[in-house]
């Protein structure tokens, strides 16, 4: 459903993405692995239109969305859960959720209220804290709020940029359970992760991004067998 073709994105002279090509299948969980500084977040920001690529194209449902404004891309059905959560700290939980529905100008207020209710049912802890400032939530709760805020746009494709970053192992489990639940409910997911072990349990397809280039493309089985990935990301002992 999402096709990234030979995308080059640069910060000034430095090319963070040096011609990235990959695709995200409908109804799948696609995972992008890669070390720090590989360009994973840059790719996310390029897909969502926050950064403009220097070259290449991004197509969504066979429509070219390269270089469109972020608002248009959200309306087309792509929502981002940004790295480090980035909730609006001095707005209440409810206001954060409402902000997520910003681009839905066509929806009636009652429809948005229903969706908020659905978010509270999915994340009961957000209901308890609905009038609290988002900045006072714990890291895990903020991550849930960030996911819920993105879902308020009713995306067909959800981009998640390192949702497990800086969270305790138990909370990470919870986040990955959310990823599974969302997928079961029919949302396609493009997940950026450093936690390869967790990602192996949920993803259908893997890409490895290193220094702005895709260096691996394969299924979980192929990935688990790849020697380089084993050493660098899974930490399993070499058997030879």
């Amino acid at each position: 459903m999402l096709e990234v073709q030979d995308v080059v994105t640069a910060y000034g002279k430095i090319e963070a993405l040096k011609g990235v090509t990959l695709r995200v299948g409908e109804g799948q969980i696609t995972c992008l692995l890669g070390p720090n500084g590989a360009g994973k977040t840059t790719l996310m920001l390029t897909i969502t239109g926050i950064l403009k690529p220097r070259r290449g194209s991004v197509r969504f449902h066979d429509k070219d969305i390269t270089g469109q404004a972020p608002g248009g891309i959200v309306r087309a059905g792509i929502a981002l859960v940004p790295e480090n959560r980035l909730v609006f700290p001095e707005m209440t939980v409810a206001e954060n959720l409402r902000a997520g529905a910003y681009s839905r100008t066509g929806s009636a207020a009652s429809e948005i209220a229903n969706d908020m209710e659905a978010m509270y049912n999915r994340f009961p802890r957000l209901r308890e804290r609905s009038t609290q400032m988002a900045g006072t939530l714990s890291g895990g709760e903020q991550q849930m709020l960030s996911v819920a805020r993105a879902l308020m746009a009713r995306p067909k494709l959800l981009l998640m940029d390192e949702p497990s970053l800086g969270l305790a192992p138990m909370i990470v489990e919870e986040i990955f359970q959310i990823v599974r639940d969302l997928h079961k409910d029919g949302t396609s997911i493009f997940l950026v992760e450093q936690n390869a072990h967790m990602a192996l349990q949920v993803a259908h397809h893997f890409y490895l991004l290193e220094q702005g280039r895709v260096t691996f493309d394969g299924t979980p089985g192929e990935m688990a067998e790849d020697e380089v990935i084993q050493r660098a990301y899974l930490g399993t002992r070499q058997t030879a």
Partner: peptide, 10 residues
């Protein structure tokens, strides 16, 4: 509050 987050919601 957060320009990047604001852009991410469109």
């Amino acid at each position: 509050e957060d320009e990047l987050a604001a852009q991410s919601v469109g």
